[in-house]
Design a protein around this nucleic acid. Structure first.
Lengths: 396, 396
DNA sequence: ATAAATTCTTGACGAAGTTAATTAATACTG
DNA sequence: CAGTATTAATTAACTTCGTCAAGAATTTAT
């Protein structure tokens, strides 16, 4: 049973959504410019923009004088008013909740953490409601009103199989949940309209609308850490997979006869490049079963060749996985990100080298962005999903 | 400069296209049924269907009496009239032209070959025009009129980088062509409206509309032979790749440190499982540099273990590539096909075994169809593209 | 026959966006 | 400094598409 999203922002037609998202993602743009970019008539843009301006979501900036021969009437750029509405995003991990408040542009305005002492559904729901209460306690950043009065939407990101439309966590290994109607429970507990999404997909939405993915019709996001996952956007749509599985770059086989993986396969990217796999191998190589990840990283940075090799092998596996992804999809851009922020320097070179060798033809021209990922970013992704729910309540 | 398609079939609105394609791909369906499946109102279906019936593209079948308590007015199923229009499809290979005439359902009604003695553009254009003339010389299969009077569209399939919208062959290694405006040349030479497409993509369209892909929102087609290629359909759209590259399953790296590939990489699927790679390896294994493919196949079938191993290794590589594809985008179905028809028995088992092991979770539930591919099928794919051009001239 | 069920058709209506004309605001020109 | 060219935004009439609601058509069951 799909739940309905609030309709405060006057989105009444496809054109309205198009105009609004264009201004949202492509910064201040004049009406004619929006028309040119979207293929709408300028009359349609004028009509669609008006209700947004009246509702305070968009504003008209002062026209910038322009120079040059035969310059005509200067444009009045339309701009988002980011403080018109705030959004709450929460990422649920196995150990804690990370929450943020963002504005309409998904810029983080406040954040807070909460430890989880149990995976019991009720406990998590209560903890999450508390966290939201805490986040919305103060006044708005611009000081003009109370935060709670201008926040209506909550986005929640969970790893696992999540059905966004119905707001149900189908299966979450980390939490040990099956078929939990989390969105419904949170609607009630928080008073906000909740949108649920898989964590990697949430991150991808944030990237697609407010990050590297802006303007790219197709791109991929890869996260490296405890697990290795990815999400793909093709023709502006997230690939969801017929059976709910998609973007499992972690289980792309890249080393024939390589180490066994949890999934039952062998030589999967994850079996070589996940945090766990790296640590396992590092202990093997160093002969110290008690070696910690921190130590391994320090020593590798210090020049310990065998350990450097372990990290390089992980980078190589990731590079091979990326090549597979890019050769199959040909995305315009790929963002590699992940929790293992601290160790990126040990990976990056090898990822790029392997990718450059194995990417086919002009596929290699795809922009490869490798970037550490602050943990809060996951929560921001959740907020981005909430923002998105404002426009595309039905179509997604 | 996109060229326009003819507008004989009265496709005037999205609804018209929806209704027509529904009847085309899902057999005889009543109007109410079309409405239910597409989400249109039944009134809209009635309106959209009328012009097609008047133009002879659709017909109303006699209502089948129905039984049961409280049965109402019986439905009048709408059906395609396949003989209303014929289409020509031609596949250009390095050595010859293969052409077919199909009806609206993409069923082959006639076929013909033509050897190519040169890759000179003019020569190919002339040969193709001759072939088309030959194909359209006779009367229609139903004997009521001349073929040429009921064929307006030509579809042409070429391997390489093809820009369908502009009808230009950007780069075709087999033919040694760069930036050839083939569609324009063929429009003139044949008098038909030509649509150009990459060969694998053409085959995929045929499969999507008239084959295994019917009803699947996402699926993939993989061809194995001289080269190894694939094409993906996501949300009903062919994935084209930002830089024109997509579906290069042949260059997915599956054997780390494996044999070098033309593309500069190592251990690509194609470097292990292409016809050429298999032959190379078979010669190595048997110690006979003059071994032919036919001999290798015969001996492997006869139980020659080392040679059987070579084919199994190829199947294994293909299985790994399929697992990569399926784990990344989770299609509903995958069709594996290709020129190497004769040798499928030596591959199939191993492909399935490896795929089953490496496919992640429920991704393994995707339907894997492995099927020989008559050579004519490529030409049929080209015809399917021509048929498709009738409806979606603009949107693709 | 009459009622109930289901399909198909019709015409009025409404939503959304286009075209074309109009108004607005600027820079260049003599 | 008026006049002209140029580009931006708005307005109003019109087109197009599809829905809605009512009704006609055609069957089975009572």
């Amino acid at each position: 049973m799909p739940r309905s999203a609030p309709a405060r922002a006057p989105i009444t037609s496809p054109a309205a959504a198009t105009v609004f998202t264009t201004v949202l993602t492509e910064g201040p743009v004049s009406r004619v410019d929006v028309a040119r970019r979207t293929g709408l008539s300028s009359a349609a843009v004028t009509k669609a923009a008006r209700p947004f301006i009246e509702a305070g979501y968009l504003e008209e900036l002062a026209s910038e004088g322009r120079t040059g021969p035969g310059a005509g009437r200067p444009a009045n750029p339309l701009a988002i008013r980011p403080d018109r509405e705030y959004f709450v995003g929460v990422k649920i991990t196995g150990d804690d909740l990370i929450g943020v408040v963002t504005d309409l542009r998904a810029d983080v305005r406040a954040s807070a953490h909460h430890a989880l002492t149990s995976h019991d559904v009720d406990h998590v729901v209560r903890a999450l409601a508390d966290l939201v209460g805490e986040l919305l306690a103060g006044a708005t950043p611009d000081g003009t009103s109370n935060l709670r009065e201008r926040a209506y939407c909550l986005g929640v990101a969970v790893s696992g199989d999540v059905d966004r439309a119905s707001g149900v966590v189908r299966y979450s290994p980390f939490l040990g949940w099956r078929d939990v109607s989390l969105a419904e429970l949170l609607d009630e507990a928080t008073g906000l309209t909740t949108t649920l999404e898989n964590d990697v997909k949430a991150l991808t939405v944030a990237e697609q609308w407010f990050g590297e993915g802006v303007g790219a019709s197709s791109f991929a996001l890869v996260t490296v850490g405890t697990g290795i996952g990815s999400a793909l956007v093709v023709n502006g749509d997230l690939v969801r997979g017929a059976h709910g599985v998609a973007g499992e770059i972690g289980h792309v086989p890249v080393a024939d006869g390589g180490p066994p993986c949890h999934c039952g396969g062998r030589g999967c990217v994850e079996a070589i490049a996940s945090t766990e796999a790296i640590l396992l191998r590092a202990r093997e190589v160093s002969g110290e079963p008690g070696l910690t990840m921190d130590d391994a990283v320090t020593r590798a940075r210090g020049g310990d060749e065998p350990l450097r090799e372990v990290f390089a092998a992980a980078g190589h596996a990731i590079g091979l996985g990326l090549a597979a992804l890019v050769n199959l999809f040909g995305p315009e851009r790929v963002v590699v990100s992940g929790e293992g922020v601290a160790t990126y320097d040990l990976f990056e070179d090898q990822i790029r080298r392997t990718f450059a060798v194995q990417a086919f033809g002009s596929a290699a021209r795809c922009g490869l962005v490798i970037r550490p990922l602050p943990f809060e970013e996951w929560a921001r992704g959740a907020a981005a999903v909430a923002i998105q729910s404002l426009f595309v309540a039905e179509s997604v």
